[in-house]
Design a protein around this nucleic acid. Structure first.
Lengths: 125, 125
DNA sequence: CAGTATCCCGCAGGATACTG
DNA sequence: CAGTATCCTGCGGGATACTG
């Protein structure tokens, strides 16, 4: 009855693939964009700047497959499709927003650190 | 004097590249492995299962460049190199561990969701 | 509107070999 | 020990065109 102890530090642990899903650039932004309620495909594409519709579809499908996002097709003409977070998705939202928050808070410092590093390690000409 | 408002949802915002660094599979594991104190290169390679030395070096360099990790070379023979988190790195540790925690807590559910999804969307033969 | 289907290029990232 | 250098392959991911 004891569940298998998942450990992403182990090479072949299935949790590695779960981590891969969530430790992803587009996942962070798409889930974040779904934070304040259901969104349509086009709305998402606009909120997540620079995402191609291929990557948006792919990310959404992955999240749906993993049970973080629910896809609802409304029987209308023209069809309206809405995406929203499941409970698991909402659980993921917290760590993901924390990551986003860290990014905001540290962007200036990180950018500065890069300049310093690059200056110090620049080709000696 | 007002700082530029970083926004990773904007296509060309520099914070996007900062998010990219942190929303990365190896970053999560390497930073997590550095949680309990300084580590040597080989020790890290062992803790982070399946990482190639190329990717470990690359990740460590990137984190050093961005100011999350400090690299210390001890003047000994043979040389001993230790990596540890900076203050910024320690700040990042929290969201990153939260993500890891989420992964652990939801792996079983996600794996199950995949099976269900795949069964429902399987090729009809 | 909300996709799917293709084509294609660049690079992420692994394997292997060499060095201070 | 802690890397660097090189080669090579798969696929991430963009552009474009078509469909229900």
């Amino acid at each position: 009855m004891t569940p298998i102890p998942f450990d992403p530090y182990l090479k072949d642990c299935p949790s590695r693939s779960v981590l891969d899903r969530v430790a992803d650039r587009w996942t962070v932004l798409v889930v974040g964009a779904l934070a304040d309620g259901p969104q349509r495909f086009t709305a998402l594409a606009q909120r997540v700047g620079g995402v191609s519709q291929k990557m948006l579809t792919q990310t959404l499908r992955g999240l749906e497959r993993d049970g973080l996002v629910r896809r609802t097709v409304h029987a209308e003409v023209p069809p309206r499709v809405e995406y929203d977070l499941t409970d698991a998705g909402r659980d993921a939202l917290e760590p993901l927003r924390a990551l986003e928050r860290w990014t905001l808070d540290h962007s200036a410092a990180v950018l500065a650190a890069r300049e310093t590093y690059d200056a110090a390690h620049a080709p000696a000409l």
